[in-house]
Computed example of a mutant assay.
Amino acid sequence: MTNFPQIGKIAPNFLTIGVYKKRLGKIRLSDYRGKKYVILLFYPANFSAVSPTELIGLSDRISDFKKLSTQILAISVDSPFSHLRSLLSDREEGGLANLAYPLISDLTQAITNDYKLLTEDGLAFPGLFIIDKEGILQYYTVNNLLCGRSINELLRILESIQYVKKNPGQACPVDWRHGDPILYSHPLKSKIYFKDLYSPKKS
């Protein structure tokens, strides 16, 4: 049985080569600890069918993630030179020109293995992990290779995680967005929420 990294535990650290703004450099996950949330986005390979749509979509929404003090790191089993080639290729060619965050190389597949996402073909399943400022894993999803992920839903989840961390004892109900009514983690306190939501409305 494959055991994924556990929610509430320290996310597996790594040190590898990343490419950002056409420059190669070392990237260590733990360097963001105490500074930013991290969205660690695994994708199968450069120039694959779905990946450019997700990576470009995230880049185009980078200001939304910066407002939430969140760093995006995208990782695949491609070499740094494949990443560089992708970043030098225009978007209409399936490339990632002007990407607003680093691409990380996992050529040895060690990181993908640590996060239990390696396919039988040696690629990475599309996994996404939210890691808080303490380096703790707060959320993850894994898709099949042909279904794109939702940026709006990712932002909603990220906001809810940050909200409950800042407001101990509170919880976010289904489809919660900032400003919506909240629950309390104590079931008796949350009776007010359920009463307001489900009681018959007076005409």
Rank of each mutant, 00 (worst) to 15 (best):
F14H: 04
L29T: 04
D196E: 14
V38Y: 00
P44M: 10
V19G: 02
S51R: 02
A171K: 02
S105V: 02
Y193D: 06
N98I: 01
D106C: 09
A124S: 15
Y163D: 09
P102E: 07
D196Y: 06
R85S: 12
L41I: 08
W176I: 03
L145E: 01
L103K: 08
R33W: 07
L24T: 11
L158N: 06
I104F: 12
L73W: 04
L137F: 04
N13P: 00
I151E: 05
Y140Q: 00
I62K: 03
I39Q: 09
K35Q: 10
R85E: 08
Y101H: 05
S160F: 10
P5G: 07
Q71T: 11
Y32L: 13
I131C: 13
I161M: 15
I10W: 03
G95K: 03
I56H: 01
R177A: 09
P80F: 05
L41M: 08
L155K: 03
S86K: 00
P187M: 00
Y20H: 14
K22N: 13
T141Y: 10
T16P: 12
D64A: 11
T108M: 00
E134L: 14
F14A: 02
D114H: 11
N152G: 07
I182H: 11
Q109W: 07
K35H: 05
R33I: 01
Y140A: 00
I27G: 05
T141A: 12
P173S: 00
S185W: 01
L87N: 03
D180F: 14
T70R: 04
G169H: 11
G57N: 10
N46T: 02
I75F: 00
I75N: 02
K21G: 06
Y37C: 00
L40W: 10
T119I: 01
P187F: 07
K66L: 11
L58H: 10
Y163G: 04
R177K: 14
I72V: 13
K35W: 03
I75V: 09
K201Q: 15
F47I: 01
H178N: 09
I182Y: 07
G95F: 08
Y20S: 11
